[in-house]
Simulated scan of single mutants.
Amino acid sequence: MALKRMKGEEQMKKVFLVDFDGTVTKKDAVYMMVEKFAKEGWQYYNELWEKGEMSTEECAIETLKLMEVSEEELFKFIMENVEIDDHFLEFLGVTKEKEYEVVIVSDGYDFIIEAVMKKYNLKLPYYSNKMWFEGGKIKVAFPYKDKECDKCGMCKLNILKEYRKKGYSVAFVGDGYSDFCVVEHADEVFAKDVLADYCEEKGIKYFRFGSFKDIIRYVKR
């Protein structure tokens, strides 16, 4: 039986922090970009990053040295090839009805996120690493990096902590290595692929999903 709220009692605010590459998008857009435009050798740096032996920043700097692409080519590639989960737009509709906030948290790049949001006419707040072109070369910056931790370029755990300070209940949705730290602190976890395996290994309570259709069912319940 649902309890009625007393007069003056506020319902706790809720935010969904949602990973971007491989979660909102069907495939990891950064991986797609590198696979398409980087010369041989990038796989070595990617393996080191997956093992935790190289930070996102270090991996990015070395990988980008192997990239050969113009700003126009990259934008066109993203617009033509990067697709979002078939049910993500419906998920946004359901969370809006519930008055839940949705924020993108990505260890990828704003250039890609902005292009995808333009393609699908989306306007969502996001936190990510920065990428731009200067003199025909790709430049990157990491404004949300944790000063005491080298692993990720964008610290998702720090974003979670900021929302907690504002009185939010935090649900996290993700799939990969850059999500490991944050799921140990979220109120609810929705995981797939490598992240789901990590939650199993660490005994972290989570809801396994294949697409946002599964999360929609959960939210509607």
Rank of each mutant, 00 (worst) to 15 (best):
R208N: 08
V105H: 00
S106P: 02
H185G: 12
N121C: 11
E184W: 03
E97Y: 08
D85T: 13
G176C: 00
G174P: 05
E62V: 03
D197C: 10
A38L: 12
Q43R: 09
F207M: 08
L157P: 02
G136Q: 14
F16C: 08
D175S: 06
V182I: 06
D86F: 08
E184P: 06
F20Q: 01
V140A: 15
V105K: 03
L89T: 08
M12Y: 05
G153A: 00
F180W: 04
K39D: 15
D150E: 09
C59L: 05
G210R: 07
M67I: 11
G153Y: 00
V189C: 00
W49K: 14
R217K: 04
G136M: 12
I215W: 04
L122V: 14
M154S: 03
S178Y: 00
V194I: 13
E188P: 10
S169N: 09
E134M: 01
N81T: 01
E101V: 00
I138T: 14
C155L: 01
Y31E: 09
R217L: 04
D187V: 01
E200N: 13
V170Q: 09
M33H: 09
C199H: 02
K139I: 08
I78T: 05
G22Q: 05
G108Y: 03
Y177H: 11
Y168T: 05
K76S: 11
G203F: 09
K156H: 09
Y198G: 04
D107A: 01
R164Q: 11
K14I: 04
K202V: 11
G41V: 07
L89I: 13
E83T: 06
I159G: 12
K7Q: 15
G22Y: 03
E201C: 10
E68W: 01
K151A: 08
V18Q: 07
G210H: 01
L160D: 06
L124H: 10
D85F: 09
A115F: 10
K145A: 03
F77W: 05
I112E: 07
A186M: 11
I215M: 05
Y206T: 12
E90R: 06
F207H: 15
T95N: 03
T95M: 04
D150R: 13
F212M: 11
I78P: 00
E10K: 04
W49I: 10
V82M: 00
Y168N: 14
M12N: 05
M117R: 02
T25E: 00
E73L: 11
E148N: 14
E97W: 04
D107K: 02
I112K: 07
M1D: 12
K36L: 03
S178Q: 06
T63W: 03
E68S: 11
M117H: 14
K36R: 11
L89P: 04
S106Q: 06
D19R: 08
F37K: 13
K26Q: 08
E148D: 14
E73Y: 11
F142Y: 09
E72D: 13
I159N: 03
Y100G: 04
K96D: 07
F16Q: 02
D146C: 14
Y127I: 10
Y206S: 09
R5T: 13
M67S: 06
G52H: 06
H87Y: 15
Y126S: 11
D175H: 04
Q43L: 05
D107T: 02
S169A: 12
